[in-house]
Simulated assay, not measured.
Amino acid sequence: MTTPGQHPAPIPDWPAGSEFTLGVEDELLLVDEENHLLGASAAPLLARLRAQAPADGVVKGEIFADEVELETPVCADAEEVARSLGGLRGSLVEQGARLMAAGVHPAADIGTAALTRSPRYDLLAAEFGGLLRTPTAGFQVHVGVPDAASAVLAFRGLRNRLALFRALAAGSPYWHGRDSGLACVRPAILRSYPRTTMPPVLRSWDDYLDKVGRAISASEVPDYTYVCWELRPQPRLGTIEVRVMDAQHSLATVAGLAALVQGVARCAVEDPDPDDLPEEYLLDNDFRACRHGLDAMVLDSDGCRRPLREVAATAVAGARRVLGPDGLAGSLDVVDDLLTRTPEPTRQRHLCEGRGMAALLADLAARTMGRG
């Protein structure tokens, strides 16, 4: 936290940049041969992985010692995102890493997490205390927008549809060896952390500066990057970051979800939503998406409750409309498939109930490493 007399770093101006480019942060768990978390023993492995990372991406550590974050370069489209992540994952596997994409490790014990030391992480560990109980892994998508005014419009369009991104990416029904009863349990952990919340309404760029400034001041944190709304502007990068999605083992699904973020953001700028979803709707929709996944019924902007699959199909159609003329809509076919096939939480439950937890862990690791 900031010390007496120390002022937070200023929020950067929005940079000029490419429109509706993509970048991804791919958080993955590091596991052993039995597919359990490595804990503190991951530290030398992670140091080696970071030192030998390919030039077309970044390999970073996370606050949990047995978690790695892969960052793509700026990409023009979703297929480029998937190629970049495929190369990064492949490089790590070649170096001996066992990777697992799961929002929460299904069988990790509570309260045994090993933490990484760094100035930033030491600040967070001191603030969070015992809340850092088990790693969570997300699939975070950045979409570039040209200016601050467009950022507010893209933020509104994505915020109004966060529940569908949550449900499409839901894949963490188990925690601590038990069925949580949820399609996506990761938010139940993240929401215990300060400043990790659903995003507020932003009516203008000045409104963003005011709200994030108040959050920085109230929490006495060094800068705006410590304010981790689940959808947030990233002024330094010139992007809007979607943070509600679980880690994904399938690179095809990675591409589909990234394309949907790109299409929804572009559609929101070119044909803006007239209103912001009320906070009460947003919170209830998100819980229903966490609880029921794609089977949820959610409140639309007109106050009518609709099947989430119907809301998602409408969003996909809008994304196709704006991405299609530039040849960028092909990856959206994967999202259409997600809306019709067995949801990932159901698939995991069937596997665990039929063959046991060990089989589920092995399946998640194999799929993440391209062997499933």
Rank of each mutant, 00 (worst) to 15 (best):
Q6A: 15
H7V: 14
A9F: 10
I11S: 03
G17Y: 00
L22F: 03
V24C: 14
E27Y: 06
L28C: 00
V31C: 02
D32K: 12
E34V: 11
N35C: 14
H36R: 15
L37A: 03
L38F: 03
G39C: 01
G39T: 01
L45S: 02
A47E: 15
A47M: 12
G57Y: 05
V59A: 14
E62D: 14
A65G: 00
V68M: 01
L70T: 11
P73W: 06
V74N: 11
C75Q: 12
C75E: 11
A76Y: 02
D77Q: 13
D77R: 08
D77I: 09
E79G: 15
E80G: 05
E80F: 07
G90M: 05
E94H: 02
A97Q: 02
L99T: 03
A114D: 02
A114W: 08
R117Y: 07
R117Q: 11
D122G: 00
D122C: 05
E127M: 13
E127I: 15
R133C: 07
G138C: 10
F139N: 06
Q140N: 10
H142V: 07
G144H: 09
V145I: 12
V145Y: 10
A149H: 10
A149S: 14
G157E: 09
N160V: 07
F165V: 07
R166C: 10
A167Y: 08
P173D: 05
D179G: 08
G181R: 06
C184M: 11
L190H: 03
S192T: 14
R195M: 03
T196A: 13
M198W: 12
P199W: 11
P200W: 06
P200E: 12
V212E: 09
A215L: 13
S217E: 12
A218K: 02
E220R: 05
V221Q: 06
T225Q: 15
C228Y: 08
L231S: 07
Q234C: 15
R236S: 13
R243G: 09
M245P: 12
A247H: 02
A247Q: 00
Q248N: 08
L251S: 09
A252H: 00
T253A: 08
Q262V: 02
A268K: 03
D273V: 12
P274R: 04
D276E: 04
D276V: 00
L277P: 04
E280H: 00
Y281F: 15
N285Q: 07
D286L: 11
F287D: 13
G293A: 08
M297P: 04
V298S: 07
R305N: 04
R305A: 09
L308A: 11
V311A: 09
A312C: 03
A319G: 08
L323F: 07
G327L: 01
S331T: 03
L332D: 08
V335D: 05
V335F: 03
D336S: 08
L338H: 00
T340R: 15
R341T: 14
P343V: 11
T346A: 14
Q348R: 13
H350N: 11
C352Q: 15
G354I: 12
R355A: 14
M357I: 10
M357R: 05
A358I: 01
A359S: 14
L360H: 07
L361I: 00
R367L: 07
T368P: 04
M369G: 01
R371H: 02
G372S: 03
